[in-house]
Design a binder for these strands. Structure first.
Length: 587
RNA sequence: GGUCCCGUGGUGAAGUCAGGAGUUCACGCCGGCCUGUCAAGCCGGAGGUCGCGGGUUCAAAUCCCGUCGGGACCGCCA
């Protein structure tokens, strides 16, 4: 981010922000307000007080005996002057000036804070930071993050507005829908025993807005999912949710790209290159992931053909054999580490992990003896391996092979998220169906059941449903899934076909989705959309590994808020009014 | 639901493997000195249920069991 001088917005209490004072202000009388950061006392008649507000700190020279302590809230009026020769501090933007002849007004005294209000608190236990979040947020890092977030929001809104999208707010109290993520339920007081749900996304409403002829809808939408929390997941999160009519995939991708690139530019000052595209199949084949991190290489290499005639049992039965190469990894990885990687590969579903350390005349590996004289040079050739390199191979079903190597690739080489460059990628042509239901054996929706199948694959519904592609797409940044979307089905015939493949009968479809699909009978335009997570985008642009750092008041991994102590036990009176009774835990 | 890591004055750590008096270091806090410092300096001081409960032991921060809290990940997140 570019360091610029903060803009002053004078109020009745202050003329300048602390961090805004510069050489040009020398000689003027100013009033600043803020918190006492550090004070350096030199006897009764000289003290330096660093006064801090969100814009930065400024040194105030106080010649009277004033008792001001850490985090006291002060209003200081004085004269800006150049610091004496040899006492300038280049580490501070305000370091060439100071405020002298200070008149100090204590607006509020303060108890010493439980942790320092500066970068040292980065190391403080996060639970303590969250318990006193209002103090944590006073820190430069958190102020920066909040402001960056605001900038991103504004840029996204502006980008959507200038593309003639209409912001429409959809309800927070919605009907419960059985599919998808677990929902938060809200009991109805008027109808005890009935519940609203909090929306996992405005999906249903935004598609109905297309039926309503809104044409281009967007919303900075709060979404709620009652699933286990992670570094990149909170119960509640914000999405840029959008939907548009009479479009194909390119139209949607263009609109969203513009918003994302504008947001990135607002945050970093630099416009990223146009976002590249990759098919889901390529992403899996090359990076072993549907959210490939393109910042580093170590791509998966195809070895199936090399081992077509192999005698090695572990390879001969496999439909896909692939490898990754770690440059110079032979000496770096000891037996212990390789065993650990093998364990990980196994727990991720692979039958095993073969490692080959390249030597001058072959491989150092427990399986070296199973490889033929022809195979050894071919493997080295395909992998581009030299002496001292380490090759890791998985042989399994195609999806397992890709997935496991992709996981290992990330494990070994993925840089921290704050390390550039930013690599955005559209992953397109997701499969329509992913996996099969354990009980019924029916395919399951990859995205959701209203996703448009790829027109070239309609013929494969009966013959090979799992290979049917869809017009569904994800936006990925540095290995994080930012969001996903699709072109939707708007014709009943096709919808029925998809339901059929999913094993959903007409009756069942009517029962589950009728309230949503029947309105389509009144004329649903072809439409499609997208939603991307603003928290994740901001986190990456802020260089934070954890979205809690860019959320003002986040929840802990267990879903609690240490500051407010929520969730709290229900008040019996309210419970009675709602017709609720808590059962003892089932254990 | 599962795997792994962590919990020691207000804060951060060392001490735990290999049991021996609440021991140590830094920051902060309180008091004193100090007129150009800037994570000021010097001197002095206060501050602890070693997360909690149980067990083993002559003796537990340390070993064992349980539990609570925090974190990372898997499952889950159409």
């Amino acid at each position: 981010m570019t360091e610029s001088t903060p803009t002053n917005h004078p109020t009745s209490m202050r003329t300048h922000l602390c961090g805004a004072l510069r050489d040009a202000d020398v000689g003027s009388t100013v009033s600043v307000c803020g918190w006492v950061g550090r004070r350096r006392e030199h006897g009764e008649h000289l003290a330096f007080v660093d006064l801090r507000d969100h814009s930065g700190i400024v040194q105030c020279v106080i010649n009277d005996d004033v008792d001001v302590r850490s985090e006291y809230v002060l209003r200081i009026t004085g004269t800006v002057r150049e610091r004496p020769e040899g006492t300038m501090n280049d580490a501070l933007p305000t370091g060439r000036v100071e405020i002298g002849d200070c008149e100090v007004e204590i607006l509020r005294s303060a108890t010493p804070p439980p942790f320092p209000i500066d970068a040292r608190a980065d190391d403080v236990d996060e639970n303590i930071r969250l318990k006193h979040r209002y103090l944590d947020l006073r820190r430069e890092r958190m102020q920066k993050n909040l402001r960056l977030r605001s900038k991103v929001n504004t840029a996204v809104r502006y980008a959507m507005d200038t593309q003639d999208f209409v912001e429409v707010e959809t309800p927070m109290l919605v009907p419960s829908t059985p599919e998808g993520a677990r929902e938060f339920l809200v009991p109805s007081r008027k109808e005890p025993g009935s519940f609203y749900a909090l929306p996992q996304s405005p999906q249903l409403f935004k598609q109905l807005l297309m039926v309503a002829g809104v044409d281009r809808y967007y919303q900075m939408a709060r979404c709620l999912r009652d699933e286990d929390l992670r570094a990149d997941r909170q119960y509640e999160f914000m999405q840029l949710d959008m939907e548009m009519s009479f479009v194909n995939q390119d139209d949607v991708l263009d609109v969203v790209s513009l918003a994302v690139l504008a947001a990135a530019e607002a945050a970093t000052g630099e416009r990223p290159a146009p976002i590249e595209r990759m098919t889901w199949h390529d992403a899996m084949n090359r990076f072993g992931s549907d959210k490939p991190d393109l910042r580093f290489g170590m791509e998966l290499q195809e070895l199936t053909a090399v081992f077509a005639q192999t005698e090695f049992k572990a390879f001969s039965g496999a439909t896909a054999i692939k490898g990754i190469k770690i440059d110079g990894g032979a000496s770096e990885f000891g037996r212990n580490q390789l065993d650990k990687l093998t364990e990980k590969a196994k727990s991720a579903g692979a039958k095993g992990l073969v490692w080959l350390k390249c030597t001058d005349d072959g491989f150092d590996s427990p399986v070296a003896k199973f490889l033929s004289d022809e195979e050894v040079p071919e493997v080295k050739d395909v992998m581009g391996a030299d002496t001292g390199d380490l090759i890791l191979i998985v042989a399994d079903a195609w999806d397992t092979t890709c997935q496991v190597l992709g996981m290992i690739r990330n494990e070994i080489a993925r840089p921290p998220v704050h390390e550039g460059p930013y690599r955005y990628v559209w992953v397109v042509e997701f499969p329509l169906f992913v996996g099969r239901d354990k009980e019924t054996g029916q395919p399951k929706s990859g995205h959701h059941p209203f996703t448009m199948p790829h027109p070239d694959d309609i013929g494969k519904f009966e013959t090979d449903p799992m290979s049917v592609r869809s017009i569904a797409y994800d936006l990925v940044l540095n290995g994080w899934e930012l969001g996903s979307g699709s072109i939707r089905i708007h014709e009943p015939e096709l919808q029925r076909k998809v339901f059929q493949a999913l094993g959903i009968s007409d009756d069942e479809a009517e029962k589950k989705f009728g309230f949503f699909l029947n309105p389509f009978e009144y004329g649903a335009p072809p439409h499609g959309g997208f939603a991307f997570g603003l928290d994740r985008l901001v986190a990456i642009l802020a260089g934070e590994e954890n979205i809690r750092e860019i959320i003002a008041f986040p929840k802990t991994q267990s879903g609690a808020d240490p500051m407010t102590d929520s969730p709290i036990v229900g008040d019996p009176k309210s419970m009675a009014e709602l017709g609720l009774k808590v059962l003892p835990p089932t254990t």
